[in-house]
Structure formats: C-alpha cells, structure tokens
Simulated scan of single mutants.
Amino acid sequence: MNLSGVPEPKLAFAPKHYMCRRAAEPLLLDGRLDKPFWAKADWTDDFVDIEGDLRPKPGKRTRVKMLWDDDCFYFGAELEEDQIWATLTERDSVIFYDNDFEIFIDPDGDSHQYYEFEINALNTVWDLLLVKPYRDGGPAVNGWDISGLRTAVHIDGELNRPGAANRKWSVEVAMPWTTLRECAPEGRPPVEGEYWRVNFSRVEWRTEVVDGKYRKVVNPETGKPYPEDNWVWSPMGIVNMHYPELWGYVIFDGGDRGEAEPFRLPPDELVKWELRKLYYRQRNRYAECGEFTGDSALLMGGDSWTICPTIEITGRLFEISAPSADERSIWRIREDGMLWKERSV
C-alpha cells in the first residue's frame, strides 16, 4: 500500500443533511422537475464551492431534490446555465471533461465501497464503484454498472448553440435498490429513519465561443484549459470529492407521520470524525518521517478533543480506537482509512 500523505480538510465538521420523503407516485422520466412527482420533495441548500467559505459562492445556482420508494432512490437536479454544452456520447467516458452533474453515495458510511455517478447535458453517464478512496490506494471499478438505471435530461434553452436563450438544464435519475444495496448495511435497502452518506458535485469549465462553438478557455502560460470549478452540496474543505466522511446525511423518512423531527447528528459521528482526523495526521506523519507514532498527544496537538484514543502501531500498519459515545462499543480506524465498530467485551 502506498502510504502517502492525506491532506486534512480545512473546515469544521458540519455536513449538510436532508430529509428524503417517500415518493407518492411512479416517476415518468423526462428530465423536468416541475411535475407533481417532485412536489413534496424539498430543495437542498444551493451548492457552494467545494472548499466552502475559503472560496467565493458560485455564480450559477445548483440545487437537488430527492425521494425514495420501495424500488428506487430518486434524484432531481437543476443547474442554472447560460452556456449549455456537452460533447461526450459514450457511456463510461470521463464525463467531468464536460460540464456535468455528479452523485456520490456511501451507504454504510465507512468510506469504503461507495458509488460515483456522473451525467452531462447529452444524458451520457459514467457509473463506477470505488473499493476505497484513491488516497488509500483504492481502485475504481469502471466495469461496474447500476443495473436498471434510468436517467433523463431536460434543456431549458438549446444544447451546443452559442447565443441561444439558455436558462438551465435539469436531470432526473432513478437508481434501483437492487444495485445500491450491494454496499449497504446487511445488503439491503434503507429503512425508515436510517441515513446514508451522500454528496453532489457540479463541474463547470470556463468556456468561450470560437467559430460558432463552445471551447474551453486555454491558459496561455500552460497551454491547457484553466482548472474547472467544483460546486457541491456539502462542502469538503479540500478540492477532492473522495473524502466520503465529509459527505452529507440523507435521512430516509416514511412520510406518513406528519412533520419530521429535526435531524440531530448522532454522537458517534463526532467520535468517528475525531478518529478520522487522527488517521489524517498519522498518515501525514508517515509521509514526512517514515514511521507512525504511538503517542496520541503528538497527533492531537493542542486541539480540543472529546475522545481518549488508543494507538497500536506495527511497521507500516496502525490502528486507532476509541469508545463509542455510550461506551458500549469501540470504534476503530486503520491505515487504509477503513473505520468500523466492535462490541465491547
């Protein structure tokens, strides 16, 4: 395993959350979000820059709706845009080379075995499974597909036509539980009251019109296009979507109990986050010094912590553990970022 450094995100731990209601009727996909199917679904907060408050707010609005039923997890995304373009037509192309919309799902919240989905304005998709994040040496399984996936795109304007009166494009996605349950707890769909870790990203390239066509603006100093903007629902504090521990919480609501109770972050999520910070620092120490440390005080520094961790090290391996909030279980994290829970003896 390549034990490279793992940059520590520059933000307070405060992922977004969303109450996902049950769908009341079947979805007939056409890419439009102004039909009755979506009426009971709330909008997410508007997307922000991937680095959060470290960068200016996006100049174009992006927001999402979600619903669920016994068959599927449904997503509806609205992307304001005055330059609607796309070029890629082959499934499993690297879709973020175009402007795109992306969905990330980690069903069990352990940061391993999670899904990534991307779609452009031509309704071309890329779906893949990540065994573990790239920072932990995880491969992307490009041959993995969401069986039964349904998608649609609606263009409010004209695709690939500069000068058109463009307002936005919108996306509908239906992902069957028969596939999503593959990496889910107990290999099943969610039940009412459970939550999955989810995030969304929008990639936006700087473009200009040349010979009547959109073209990415090239930086004359490098000869390459300027870096793309990354706008997200739940900010990451780092230009990297593959930190699943920072994604938002989507709570699956039954929808038949009236107004849902406000979401409160489970206390164990803070325990897991502090273990994750120690994992960042342990990995960074190895990258700098060539060894791990068993001294928790050295990793924790002068920051404020709620856990009292135990650290075990063996050459190129480490394991850090801490009691759960109710002290009935133990949370553990190891050098490849895998985090899991064990019952106390």
Score class of each variant (00 low, 15 high):
233 W>A: 04
211 D>K: 15
245 E>M: 14
218 V>C: 09
241 M>R: 12
232 V>P: 02
215 R>Y: 03
223 G>E: 13
234 S>Y: 02
237 G>Q: 14
244 P>T: 06
229 D>S: 09
215 R>C: 00
241 M>L: 09
245 E>I: 01
218 V>W: 05
239 V>P: 02
232 V>Y: 08
242 H>T: 12
213 K>L: 01
235 P>I: 11
242 H>G: 08
227 P>N: 14
234 S>F: 07
223 G>D: 15
216 K>P: 03
245 E>D: 13
242 H>F: 15
217 V>P: 00
217 V>A: 09
236 M>F: 07
235 P>W: 09
226 Y>R: 04
213 K>D: 08
213 K>A: 12
218 V>I: 08
215 R>H: 03
237 G>A: 05
214 Y>M: 11
230 N>I: 07
221 E>L: 05
241 M>H: 04
219 N>T: 02
226 Y>T: 04
222 T>L: 04
220 P>S: 06
211 D>P: 09
223 G>T: 12
229 D>R: 05
232 V>R: 13
223 G>V: 00
240 N>P: 02
220 P>Q: 09
236 M>D: 10
236 M>K: 15
212 G>E: 15
243 Y>E: 07
213 K>W: 05
245 E>P: 03
245 E>W: 02
215 R>Q: 13
228 E>R: 15
221 E>R: 13
239 V>Q: 14
215 R>K: 12
229 D>C: 09
216 K>N: 03
221 E>F: 02
215 R>F: 00
234 S>C: 05
233 W>M: 02
